[in-house]
Design a protein around this nucleic acid. Structure first.
Lengths: 242, 242
DNA sequence: CGGGCTATTGACCATAGTCAACACAGGTGG
DNA sequence: CCACCTGTGTTGACTATGGTCAATAGCCCG
């Protein structure tokens, strides 16, 4: 039933580094199974000590933290190829929650094998550290968005990053890609109110820079969007896949 | 001249996990030298491909990114024990800059040996990944600060984190510790204007929660500060040292 | 048909940004 | 020795970006 690693549909995408045959066979052994979840299902909870780690194969999700006053900070959006649970694997406990936004298919790995894996396969261990470093980089950029960009710039930045990621994943078709989140999700990601996020999205639509409605993001030309967003329009770096 | 790892003054602090004798001897081999820099010296530049990695032994610094519009986002403050250059070691290129705020003493490591190190010492490789995961955790919290906390809460959060870190490092003496940054640095860290940061600090002083002036931070009781900051007043987790 | 969820819009408000002036300390040069 | 400059911190007055509240519309689903 489960997808074989050798047939993994993700591996072929531009976004990912290509594996050698032995690497694929090894990952296959490490893979414990496959999980399909419905929209809204929590995958990992902040403070939990999950026995399982995942790689998103299909579908999208959200990482977020909840503060003591009840407000929610969305850390980022989960796309296919993302590794979920690194903190649980390394630190023993998640520092944020992850939940499925759409129906998702996930590769499942056993946390109990994680240390063995890390010890016996230094190149894969390196890949894991690499992913952690990339995540750190992303969070640094996000920090700069919340701290230094205006609402318009921040929303543009967010859509720009998402669109470039979508392109690298082959999800973009004639300038459009699915983006099945709610405006509230983006508001919580950027530290804006829902109302202001809505008005800002309207402004981008008006200026013909980006249009996001009914779960579809349309960007005709990334360049002017990236320019407003004060960010690069380069495709994201190739990443390993777990 | 250089400090011997076995005599390293940091290792004994509460903040750090204790090493075994062989581990210490091994780190000693990996250590290429010691560097002393004056205040204001850039250690690593965004986009650079430094041949050297560092551990801060003494003194404090800043990590920051500069946006295309010239504004600066301070990512975090560098304290003794922090590893500097992980991104360069892993991704080949720094995504932010690091500079010394005070005079600093740094352990220097050779980046060219990094991969060997990683391959041959899985437990230390694990430690490096652990540090990356902790950094990711910290950035998630910072994101929540900029996104969800008011200016007063954000400044309180920042001072609270710093103070707890200072305690774990044994830098706190009768409720005070050195904090040699400028208000502008904190403003750039929290995405606030200098003026508003100043007024917010005054408010905390007025309320007797925390007082930071002349490079000295004074906190008589962390609890009420942590409560306002919506964060825990637990000491930071023990970390490995490189 | 009615209830719940999301998106949209307008009116009003508040937090935080901008501008400007001043204080104070340390350093430099006449 | 003092005048002057620069960098940092402080304060007040005014402004604006973005938050809050509220009403409405559209949609899906029981």
């Amino acid at each position: 039933m489960a997808t074989k690693c050798e047939n993994c549909p993700l591996r072929r995408r531009d976004l990912f580094v290509q594996f050698t045959e032995p690497e694929i066979r090894f990952m296959q052994k490490f893979k414990a199974g496959e999980l399909i979840v419905d929209p809204g299902t929590p995958l990992l909870m902040e403070g939990s000590n999950s026995p399982q780690l995942f790689t998103a194969l299909h579908g999208m999700g959200l990482r977020y933290k909840t503060l003591e006053n009840g407000s929610r900070q969305v850390i980022n959006f989960v796309f296919p190829g993302d590794f979920i649970g690194l903190q649980a694997g390394i630190m023993g406990e998640m520092q944020h929650s992850v939940e499925a936004t759409t129906r998702m298919t996930l590769c499942v790995f056993d946390r109990s094998e994680f240390w063995n894996f890390f010890r016996n396969h230094p190149d894969r261990a390196f890949d894991i550290t690499w992913m952690a470093a990339v995540e750190e980089h992303f969070l640094g950029e996000a920090l700069a968005s919340l701290g230094q960009r205006s609402a318009l710039e921040a929303v543009a930045w967010s859509l720009c990053r998402i669109f470039l990621r979508g392109q690298a994943l082959g999800m973009v078709d004639r300038g459009t890609m699915p983006l099945p989140f709610k405006q509230q999700d983006m508001a919580d990601a950027l530290g804006l109110s829902l109302v202001h996020t809505n008005k800002t999205l309207a402004k981008l639509r008006e200026r013909q820079l980006a249009s996001w409605s009914d779960g579809i993001l349309q960007v005709n030309d990334v360049e002017p969007l990236a320019e407003l967003a004060l960010c690069s329009s380069e495709p994201p770096v190739k990443r390993p896949i777990m």
